[in-house]
Each structure stands twice: as structure tokens, then as C-alpha cells.
């Protein structure tokens, strides 16, 4: 009874005047990181160079696609810890199927030399394989009601194991130019394909989140799963679709990352799920569910990537970089939780 009263009192305060404290709680991490970026650009002018910014943008593209996948899980109060390993598996599958005909260390020496369409076929194979794992994730979470944290943690290990068995832990390289071209090529020689693919995915996900019943149901489940169910939402189906879609996006992300780096190994994608979760949270996707925008996810990924680049440019030891990233993740989530504590 009392909490209702307080809510009503809080509301005009939030809308009428811009409260500095509220603003900092809501956007603190972003403010700090923009300041860090400015500082870095002053210290190391090359940070602001076109080349570096382009590099950041290209790094952001696959990470954004992966974070889009994770965002659906987070919005429904779940999570997906198997994301990074699925990225790795997808990169490895793509790598083994798309090696140069003459390459000596070919994974499948007898694989015939298919035409250019084979690149797309392999992408579909990667998506199909990951989607199966995503389907299992979704069913474990919705039918068996295993907490997503545990269910996808198990899947993380399973996918890693599958990847090890499949590649026998050997690194894969010697890709066909048609494959690497996906990451390196540019439309009209100007706009990188990678950038266009990420843009297209962003638009599709935005559409799904805002214009389809599935998207509306997703937010409703995150807000109050029981109420959504009483309103006739098929919560199980919705969640399964979310985990399958997420896995498909990881597959695409892995496919692109493989093309971009020109080689892959079982360690590819390790820890990327945490980066994606952190990016989503920085971008305003609430770990309490029900809240999150695609634009926020993009900002979160950008900010996180800028943080990493800043640390490199400032000459921070790689080992220390992990510590800094870890702190940012914890602070971001602590601030996120603050938003809801403050409302009580």
C-alpha cells in the first residue's frame, strides 16, 4: 500500500526536472566512458583517427549481433551463458568447410570445391547447428524450468565439448577468399559488408521487438510472467523462440568473426557471452527483465568496445584490462539494480 504512494510521488519528480543524481545513476557508466574516450584521444591523438574508429566499428558489428541475441534472453529474465561457445563452434564449423582447395592442412581434404553459393550454404549449416542447441536451451528453460543461468551454463560446457570433439582442438586456417571477403569486402568499395549485415540485423530485431506480437509478449514475460500467461501469452513458446533466435544470431556472429580473423580455434568466442551481457546492461537492458531497446544494446556494445580500445591505447597491460572490464560489468549491474531499489 505504501509503495504505491511513493511511486506516485516519485513520478512527477522524474518527469518535471532533470535530477542530476538520477541522470548519473541511469547513465553513469556511459558518461565515465565517454570521458575516458576523450581523455584517451587527447593523450593519444591516433585514437581519434579514422582508421581506429573504423576498426572499432568493425569490431562492434559481430558483437552487436551477438548482444542482440543475448538481449532477448535478458529481457525475459533469463540469460545465455552458452553464447560465446556457440560463436566459437560456428566459427570452427565455417572454417572447416570453407578452406582453400589447395591448402595443405585441410580439415576435410576430400571436400570438393563448390561454387560461391557454398559460402551461404555453410552459413545456413552453422545457423542450423547452433539453432538446435538454442532449441535445447529454450526447452530446458521453459519446459524443465531450469534457471537459465544453470541451463545455459551446462550448454556452454556441452558446446565447448562438441567443438573440441569436432575439431580435435586443431586450429583452422587457410580460408577461401570468398569467405574472408564477407568480412573484408565493401559495398561499392566504401561500406563494409560487416557493417551492413549488422545494420540489417539491428533493423530486423528492432522490428521484431516493437512491431510483432512475439516482441510484445517478450517484454510482458519479462515484466510479469504470470500476468502474461493469464493474458493468454504462450510463455513457453515465446521463450523457446527467443533462445533459438539467439543461437542463430550467435552462429551468424561466429561466422563473421571467423571470416574477419581468417582463422579459428576452439578458444574463439570464449567469454564473449559475459561481454555481451555487460554490453546489454550498460545499454539499459534490465537484468530484472521487461526493459531493453535495440538502440541501447548498440550503445552498450559501442561503449564496451571503446573501453577496451582506450585501455589498449593508454598502454594498460592486457592483464589489467581484464580487471578493468570486470569492474565495469559489476558497476554497470549495480547501477542497474539501484534504479529499481530507488523506486521502493
Amino acid at each position: 500500500m505504501t509503495s504505491k504512494k511513493v511511486d506516485a510521488k516519485d513520478l512527477p519528480m522524474q518527469t518535471n526536472k532533470v535530477n542530476v543524481k538520477d541522470f548519473l545513476i541511469n547513465n553513469g557508466i556511459i558518461v565515465v566512458l565517454i570521458m575516458l574516450a576523450i581523455f584517451t584521444a587527447i593523450k593519444q591523438p591516433s585514437f581519434g583517427s579514422f582508421d581506429n574508429l573504423k576498426n572499432i566499428a568493425l569490431n562492434v558489428a559481430p558483437r552487436f549481433i551477438i548482444a542482440c541475441g543475448v538481449s532477448g534472453c535478458l529481457i525475459t529474465r533469463g540469460t545465455d551463458l552458452s553464447a560465446g561457445r556457440m560463436v566459437g563452434l560456428s566459427a570452427c564449423i565455417a572454417g572447416t568447410l570453407l578452406q582453400k582447395p589447395g591448402y595443405s592442412g585441410k580439415f576435410f581434404p576430400n571436400l570438393p570445391d563448390f561454387g560461391i553459393w557454398w559460402v551461404f550454404a555453410v552459413l545456413l549449416i552453422c545457423i542450423a547447428v547452433c539453432a538446435i542447441f538454442g532449441l535445447i536451451n529454450g526447452m530446458v528453460v521453459s519446459f524443465l524450468q531450469v534457471p537459465a543461468f544453470i541451463g545455459t551454463l551446462g550448454m556452454q560446457l556441452i558446446v565447448y565439448g562438441v567443438c573440441l570433439v569436432y575439431t580435435n582442438a586443431t586450429p583452422i586456417g587457410g580460408y577461401r577468399p570468398a569467405y574472408t571477403e564477407v568480412a573484408k569486402g565493401r559495398l561499392f568499395g566504401v561500406i563494409p559488408y560487416l557493417f551492413l549485415i549488422a545494420l540489417a540485423i539491428g533493423l530486423v530485431i528492432w522490428f521484431v521487438y516493437n512491431k510483432t506480437p512475439h516482441g510484445k509478449y517478450m517484454y510482458a514475460i519479462g515484466g510479469n510472467e504470470q500476468a502474461a500467461e493469464v493474458s493468454g501469452v504462450n510463455t513457453k513458446k515465446t521463450k523457446i523462440i527467443i533462445y533459438v533466435t539467439a543461437a542463430a544470431l550467435y552462429a551468424l556472429g561466429g561466422f563473421l568473426v571467423g571470416a574477419k580473423s581468417g582463422g579459428s580455434s576452439v578458444n574463439m568466442g570464449m567469454g564473449w557471452e559475459l561481454e555481451a551481457i555487460a554490453a546489454c546492461t550498460i545499454g539499459g537492458v534490465s537484468v530484472n527483465g521487461g526493459i531493453g531497446k535495440v538502440s541501447g544494446v548498440l550503445i552498450g556494445v559501442l561503449v564496451f568496445e571503446i573501453l577496451k580500445t582506450c585501455l589498449q591505447y593508454l598502454g594498460v597491460d592486457t592483464n589489467y584490462q581484464y580487471i578493468a572490464q570486470g569492474i565495469v560489468i559489476v558497476v554497470a549491474i549495480a547501477l542497474d539494480i539501484r534504479k529499481y531499489i530507488a523506486k521502493k
Binding site: P213, K216, Y219, Q226
Partner: peptide
């Protein structure tokens, strides 16, 4: 509170949640 309102959503979203399927064509609301 438990099975009625979806607190973090707007009045509009709360009102429409049970009816989207009636106003959806080709997967689009």
C-alpha cells in the same frame, strides 16, 4: 500485482497484451 499488471510496461501495452493476436496480419501488429 502478482498476476494482473505488468508493472514495467505502459498502460497501452498492458491493455493490448491479451488482444495482439486479433490485430496481427502477416506477423505484424
Amino acid at each position: 500485482r502478482g498476476t494482473g499488471i505488468i508493472g514495467c510496461l505502459s498502460i497501452a501495452d498492458n491493455t493490448a497484451i491479451a488482444s495482439y493476436r486479433n490485430y496481427t496480419k502477416a506477423g505484424t501488429i
